[in-house]
C-alpha cells in the first residue's frame, strides 16, 4: 500500500492581480519522504508554501496538509502545530535574544523537543544572550532551523534553506538536516533552486515552472528512466517528429539529433533507426540537465 500523503494539491491556482503565480499546480508528498521542490526564481515555490501554511489564500483548486484543508483558519492552526517552518529570508524577531525567541517559540508547541533544542544550540554554537539582529546570516539560518527542528513536528517545510549561505555553512545546514531526518520520523518538504542541495538530500522531487508541476517523482526512478539519446547522421540530421512516448525535448543541430527522454529510450532509438543514423548513444542524465531541459521545454 502506498504511503499516505502529507501534502496534496490539485489544480492549485493563485493570482496576484493580473499575474498568475500558480496555474493548476499538482503535488503529492508521501509521508516519510524528503521532497525537493525545484524551480527557477518566481516559479511559484514560495507561493505554494505560503498557501500550504495559510499565509496566502489560494485563488482556486485544493491544498491539503495532513488531509486538512490549508485554507481553513481552524485547520491551519492544527497544520502549523504539526509543522516546522523556516522561511527563505529567515526573518525572526530582531529585538529578542536567542534564548528569548527559543522560549517564545517553544511555548506554542506542546511537543517541543528540549533535547533537540539543546543539541542544536550546542552544534550551531548559538549564543543564548545575543540579540537576533546581531546574528550573521549563517547564524540566523541556523537559529531558524533550530526553531523549526525542535517543534517536534511531523512535517518540516523549508523555503530555500541554504539561500545566501556560503558553501561551508550550506553544507553544515544540509548535514544537520540529513542527520535530523535520519533520527526522527518526519516528512521534509523543501524548496530550492540549488540542484546540488536537492540531489544531496531529497528522495523525491517535483520541478515546478510558471506555476505548474512539470516533472514529479522519485529521484532514483528519474535517474533510472531519464536518458539523453544522441543520433549522429552522415549528412544533416533529417527532420522528424517522434511518436514514441517519453520525449521531453528534442534538439537538432547539423548532423546531430539530441533527444531527452523521460522513459522508453528503446522505443525512441528504434523509431530513429529507420532514418539510419551512423551512431546512437544513450546516456544517463544528471538532475541538473533534467531540470534545465524540462524548464527550457516550457519556454
Amino acid at each position: 500500500m502506498a504511503d499516505p500523503l502529507v501534502i496534496e494539491t490539485s489544480d492549485l491556482r493563485k493570482r496576484y492581480g493580473a499575474a498568475e503565480a500558480l496555474r493548476g499546480l499538482a503535488l503529492a508528498v508521501p509521508k516519510g519522504s524528503i521532497f525537493g521542490f525545484l524551480g527557477r526564481n518566481g516559479a511559484g515555490k514560495t507561493t505554494t508554501i505560503k498557501i500550504l501554511l495559510g499565509m496566502a489564500h489560494a485563488s482556486g483548486g485544493d491544498a491539503r496538509v495532513f488531509g486538512l484543508p490549508a485554507g481553513s483558519p481552524a485547520a491551519g492552526v492544527e497544520i502549523r502545530r504539526r509543522t516546522g517552518f523556516a522561511g527563505e529570508e529567515k526573518d525572526l524577531y530582531d529585538y529578542m535574544t536567542v534564548a528569548e525567541i527559543v522560549r517564545f517559540t517553544a511555548a506554542f508547541y506542546p511537543r517541543w523537543r528540549r533535547d533537540l533544542e539543546q543539541r542544536y544550540r550546542r552544534a550551531f554554537d548559538l549564543p543564548a544572550d545575543r540579540k537576533v539582529k546581531a546574528l550573521s546570516r549563517g547564524m540566523r539560518t541556523k537559529l531558524a532551523l533550530l526553531l523549526a527542528l525542535s517543534r517536534g513536528a511531523e512535517l518540516l517545510v523549508l523555503d530555500e534553506p541554504t539561500s545566501g549561505l556560503d558553501p561551508a555553512a550550506s553544507e553544515e545546514v544540509l548535514q544537520a538536516l540529513v542527520s535530523h531526518v535520519g533520527s526522527e520520523e518526519m516528512t521534509v518538504f523543501f524548496s530550492s533552486h540549488q540542484i546540488a542541495d536537492v540531489e544531496q538530500i531529497a528522495d523525491r522531487i517535483a520541478i515546478v515552472d510558471r506555476g505548474r508541476t512539470v516533472v514529479a517523482g522519485s529521484l532514483d526512478d528519474m535517474r533510472a528512466s531519464y536518458r539523453r539519446i544522441q543520433f549522429v547522421f552522415a549528412g544533416d540530421a533529417p527532420e522528424m517528429t517522434f511518436r514514441a512516448p517519453g520525449v521531453v525535448r528534442t534538439h537538432r543541430q547539423g548532423r546531430v539529433w539530441s533527444v531527452l527522454a523521460s522513459g522508453g529510450a528503446d522505443a525512441i532509438v528504434e523509431e530513429a533507426r529507420a532514418l539510419h543514423p551512423v551512431s546512437v548513444d544513450v546516456m544517463p542524465v544528471a538532475l541538473k540537465d533534467i531540470f534545465l531541459e524540462t524548464v527550457a521545454a516550457e519556454d
Binding site: M55, P73, A74, G76, T83, E89, Y93, D94, F108, A144
Partner: peptide, 16 residues
C-alpha cells in the same frame, strides 16, 4: 511592519 510576519504566521495561532 515587523519584518518577521512569516515566522509569526507559521505559529499555531489564528490571525484573529
Amino acid at each position: 511592519s515587523g519584518g518577521a510576519a512569516l515566522f509569526t504566521l507559521s505559529l499555531p495561532a489564528t490571525r484573529r
